[in-house]
Design a binder for these strands. Structure first.
Lengths: 217, 217
DNA sequence: CCAAAAATAAGGGGAAACCCTCACTACAAA
DNA sequence: TTTGTAGTGAGGGTTTCCCCTTATTTTTGG
């Protein structure tokens, strides 16, 4: 098996030595360097680039969150694996969007850590199982009330008109598309504004988007 | 094992009979009724409420998407299990937010269907594995480009104006709020429309939302 | 069948948006 | 110094939106 060179950045010496012990039984994982703050880490990276960087988010000088974008742009080949105790969905998405390949919670078993290192080394993504579930729930639950109350008040025709408005059609174009007169389309528009209690077309679009009217096609 | 009473709504007779055959080997699942359109379904539900409703999104008269909110509010005890061929993350989240308990793709094995029915009956959630993965990827990837690519073409002032437009301010109100003349605000608006290559204010709002300009505060 | 809701259509007036062009200032970079 | 960009301001004209009212036809549900 190919040797994977890794670096570790964590502000606690104890955790670093713990990781060293944890990874000792796996000879294909070579710890190339360990760092206890962001400055050291960045300096170290300029000399040796590991395959995988195991990074804590809480560092004494600069947070791992802030230095990540710089690292991923400067060293695109380094796969960053976050190892932290912060378990909020918001932090997970933020870090993944900033280019991290993996996200682990402290307290995972040694097998999990090794699997994660191997996975991100292969270019895959590795996110703690529990976090994946939390992320999903987050997506699903978010804003449930607002959108299911407003839209059912609309008639079929009004929904059609609203959808077209949200697709940047003018009243005239809507009328032609639906084979109704300009006046009728205009009426639907005004009724929508009143029913949904918004100021203008802009408000209509926001409601339409929130209600998921633009998902079809 | 307790008997689970289910109803099926799908516009294809073939699929209904297929499901019947599929579920025959499972005596604890009792098909209470089958419907091929939304009207029949709603009428049927007023007489017998199944434990689980297996629902297709494409019905001849009204889409399953539209009748779902009504069903969940009127019959909160009915667990809705979507069975469709629409596999977009957007549709999955929309339906789940509208109160569905499960989302399956046509083409799943019979075992999957039974597991899903049992799961939602127990009050759990059941989402097709492949879709879960897609949803996650969607959360992670999406919004990264839009946020960091499109908007940087705009100047600071233009971003401010765009934000206010998306908050339903008129040009006049924007001018007052930013202490600039009506003409200047109008110019910014026109420049935005050209820069972002949209037709009108509606397009601007969509871009603003996608770019996450409305999330701050 | 009858009442209610939905969809259709229209008049008219005022406001806002849209789309050019032009012009001046400030400020920073080449 | 010149060039470029951002921000500001304005003229003038066309289109679209907004809001009110009224009214007929069609569809739907009890």
């Amino acid at each position: 098996m190919e040797t994977i060179h890794i670096a570790i950045a964590d502000d606690h010496e104890l955790i670093i030595s713990g990781l060293k012990t944890l990874l000792k039984p796996y000879p294909h994982i070579n710890i190339q360097g360990t760092y206890t703050n962001a400055r050291q880490l960045l300096e170290g990276l300029s000399f040796y680039q590991p395959d995988v960087l195991v990074l804590d988010l809480l560092l004494p000088d600069q947070s791992g969150k802030d230095i990540t974008p710089g690292i991923t742009t400067q060293y695109p080949n380094i796969k960053i694996l976050i190892l932290t105790s912060i378990d909020t969905p918001a932090m997970v998405t933020t870090m993944l969007r900033r280019g991290c390949k993996g996200y682990l919670l402290k307290g995972s078993g040694s097998g999990t850590l090794v699997s994660a290192i191997e996975a991100v080394y292969r270019g895959e993504e590795y996110i703690e199982i529990a976090l994946r579930e939390q992320l999903l729930q987050n997506v699903i639950r978010y804003k449930n009330q607002a959108q299911d109350m407003v839209i059912p008040e609309l008639t079929q025709r009004e929904k059609e008109v609203l959808e077209l408005i949200a697709k940047e059609y003018t009243t005239k174009e809507i009328a032609e598309k639906l084979f109704i007169s300009y006046r009728t389309a205009e009426n639907h528009r005004c009724n929508l504004i009143q029913k949904l209690d918004v100021k203008n077309t802009v408000g209509l679009v926001k409601v339409a988007i929130q209600a998921g009217l633009l998902n079809n096609e």
